[in-house]
Amino acid sequence: MIEVVNMHKRYRLRNVLNGVSFTAEKGQVTCLIGVNGAGKSTVLKAIMGLTPMSKGTVRIDGRARERETYEKVAFIPDHLTMPSYMKLSEGLRFMADFYQSWNQARAGELMKFFRLDTSERVGNLSKGTAAKYNLVIGLAQDTDYVLMDEPFSGIDLFSRESIAEVFSTDLIDGRGVLLTTHEVGEIEHLLDKAVLLSHGTVAKEFQCEQVRSEEGKSVVDVMREVLWV
């Protein structure tokens, strides 16, 4: 379980996060939802230690972040993190060199699934292809958790569909997934849990199926209710 407790973040004299607390369970797809600028990316970055928190705690399976965390939790940012001069094959090689959790066979499967060409250079990828390659790099690690920042934003419909397809496969199955999005509608039925972020705090945290059966509301309905007041 990933636990975020009372996370605060100040940036340029503004309180971006103002005591954010939630959990993301293993084996579930949890979605951090909020309008642009709500601080979703900052939460993911702070979990991964890519930006300091002003206050608060992050625990992963009950432990503070440490070196081994990076073998256990994969982070897929909203852009590629491999230098432009690398070939795709060199990027995979780099990952294999540094991560014990790297699964080369799985990387190969994913490259095939997304029809990526290993001799292409990272700098030449289109937006949709870059997003797919980004996903390969993150998902080919045998990690317990995967964090994804806006995996569906800014790419074409077909890329979006093939990325959504990944969520229905055993690539995701059994892992804990925490993703962010600002447009939930399209992927609503992929989610187990939603965390609504607004004004630097968690406005609501709920199981999607529970809200549907108890209140007959979609995630978007709840979002409208909570975020538009």
Partner: peptide, 13 residues
Amino acid sequence: GRHTFVYRLLLLP
């Protein structure tokens, strides 16, 4: 640049 490698460097185990 477009692809910020520092993310990857800081995420290394």
